[in-house]
Amino acid sequence: MATTVSTPSTERRGAHVAEVLQSEFCKFRSVRSTFWTLSTAVLFNIALAGLAAIFIPGNLSAHEQSTTDPIRLSLAGVHLSQIAFGVLGTLIVTSEYGTGMIRATFAAVPQRRLVLAGKAIVFAATALIVGTASCFAAYATFEAFLSGDRVRSSIGDPGVVRAITGGGLYLVVLGLLGLGLGTILRSSTGAIATLFALLFVPSILLTLMPQAWRSTIGPFVPMQAGSQIFVATHHEPDNLGAWTGLGVFSLYAAAALTLGFVLINHRDT
């Protein structure tokens, strides 16, 4: 057997971190689910922007036209693409548990928190690029398909760049929430179900609650808080501000990730 490798087991910490990041990126790019979920997300963002531009403006009343936020309309696809980003963020962790790969991973890198951090960084960087780029593409598509000047906006208008970039940020945070839940629950179905229950169930429950509750709890519910970042104008007064909302949304993700970081070192695999 040819001995082609001989390296001391103790290396500089920086090199170690870089190696783990490379490894996690390799895993991320070498499964098909990454390509398919991201392609689907981009398709949703752009296609729904086009459809929204063609069908919605004509059906708006004069009052609605003046209160509708054009950026939010152009990012209608985020409501669907968020599912793809959420699933992708979750699968990064849970697919390893589901296939048994996690044992090979931890046997190769016993520093489990570094592995988890590597996964989060690789996902966040990719999601930020793909998410933001597809939101800008969605906005461009929306403007291109818009006929007439109703709900037209310009990229130079106040808050527009922030709102479009915010669409990308929202998708990153959402995926990280899934990644955190995946680490805690270690099961794809359990984590994905929990993620979407957390996103969609509160708003359904809120409609059943008294108005006073709706206006006090409502703004802090994950999706309600997070989606404020991609509203450029016409903020509803009850809701949190753009950055405050994203901050609250990020706290949910941070809580899930923190619990994941704590648990990952204390569990058998």
């Binding site: 001391p8 087991s9 390799c26 070498s30 499964v31």
Partner: peptide
């Protein structure tokens, strides 16, 4: 160990790999 693969090689269960990855990529990631 920071690079334990140089110290110990282990075969635990055969099916400890993501089924969607190629053999080369599986090993490359590790």
């Amino acid at each position: 160990y920071r690079r334990p693969l140089f110290e110990v090689g282990a075969l635990l269960e055969a099916k400890a790999a993501h089924g969607g990855r190629s053999a080369f990529n599986h090993l490359l990631c590790l």
